[in-house]
């Protein structure tokens, strides 16, 4: 499959993490990193930088949004943000241009796959 991406996913809810990982695999993508907090995510990305990051905004230790910003410090890291907050509650700055989609929980399967598809097109274009 030519449209396969190496994807890192982070969420502090194990069920959510497993489910979306499964969905991504079923879409033909490689889930190279599964992290339950920002620190794990950053550590793993140091050795194996993914093409797409899907992360919960919150989480313990380093929040997802901070991890995303750290990973985008030199080269933008294309990201899909998932949050239990509403979009208006989390202030994204203009420099967060690498954010391709912002999904509010509960995220429906169709919404998720739609967002991933948009990201794939954006990254592989």
């Amino acid at each position: 499959m030519c449209k396969s991406l190496r994807i890192a996913i982070a969420d502090d809810e194990p069920e959510v993490l497993e489910y979306f990982s499964g969905v991504l695999r079923s879409l033909g993508h490689q889930v190279v990193i599964q992290a339950s907090n920002g620190r794990e995510l950053l550590d793993a990305c140091r050795t194996d930088r993914p093409q797409l990051l899907i992360t919960d905004i919150g989480m313990d230790k380093i929040p997802g949004i901070e991890a995303m910003r750290a990973l985008s410090a030199n080269v933008p890291m294309p990201t899909i943000l998932i949050s239990a907050l509403s979009e208006g509650d989390e202030s994204l700055s203009e420099s967060d241009a690498q954010v391709l989609a912002f999904l509010s929980k509960p995220v429906k399967l169709a919404t998720f796959t739609g967002a991933v598809k948009v990201a794939v097109d954006h990254i592989l274009q």
């Binding site: 239990a84 907050l85 509010s104 509960p106 429906k108």
Partner: peptide, 12 residues
């Protein structure tokens, strides 16, 4: 906020 996580699990 909390219910969103629960709702997410129901959804999944």
């Amino acid at each position: 906020h909390e219910s969103r996580n629960s709702l997410q699990r129901i959804q999944i």
